[in-house]
Amino acid sequence: MNLNATWAKAWIRSSAQVMSEHRVELIDLDREIGDGDHGENMDRGFQAVLHKLDDLPPEAGPGDVFKFVATTLISTVGGAAGPLYGTAFLKGAVAISGTIELDGPALVAFLRAARDGIVLRGKAESGDKTMVDAWTPAVDAAEAALAGGADDRAILSAAADAAEAGALATEPLIARKGRASYLGERAIGHRDPGAQSSALLLRAAAATATTA
C-alpha cells in the first residue's frame, strides 16, 4: 500500500484494534510501575478516533488524518500519554503537511518530527525508561534504512523492529521520568508501558503498509 491518506486511516484503524487487543497487557505493565490506566486510556482514545475517522472529508491528506488523530487523542486519552501521543501526531502531521503520498524521506521526516514532539513535551532522554526509548531507535533505524536505499515499507519495518527492541530494552532500566521514576530500583525488570504501546503503534504502521 502506498503511504497516502488511505494508508494513514488503515494504520489508525489497525492501531485501534491493536490497542483494544493489548489493553490488558498495557494495563498490567502500567500497574507494575505506574497507575495502571495506560491500556484503558489508549483503548478509549483510539476508539474515539475510530468512531470519527469516517467523518474526515474525502480530500483529507495523511497530514490531515494525523492532525485529527492528534486532537482526538489529546482530548480523550488523558494522563500523560494523551498530550505525548497527541503532540507526536501533531508534529508529525505538520512535517508532512500538504503531502498526498509519503515517500521515504517524508516518512522519515514524519517519524523524526513525531519523536521530537515527544521529547519536547516529555523532556525525557534516551535511557529514561519512556516512550522515547522506543521512538529514538525507530527513527535511527528508519534513517539508516532510508540511507541504505530501502523503500517505504522496509523503512517502516525497520522502525517497528527497532521500536520493539527498544521497548524490550527498557526492562532493566531505572525510570527517570513519569510516575515510574518514584519507584527507583523497583522499576527494574518491568517494561515501560509507553514504550510498549509505541512499539505496537509502529508495528501496526508497518503491517498496514505491507498489506495490499
Binding site: 488523558g78 500523560a80 498530550p83 505525548l84 503532540t87 513535551r121 513519569g178 510516575r179
Partner: peptide, 14 residues
C-alpha cells in the same frame, strides 16, 4: 504535577 503540566503545555501549542 505530571499530566497537568503536560496538558497545559500542549494546550498552549493549540
Amino acid at each position: 504535577l505530571g499530566s497537568a503540566i503536560l496538558t497545559s503545555e500542549t494546550a498552549l501549542d493549540f
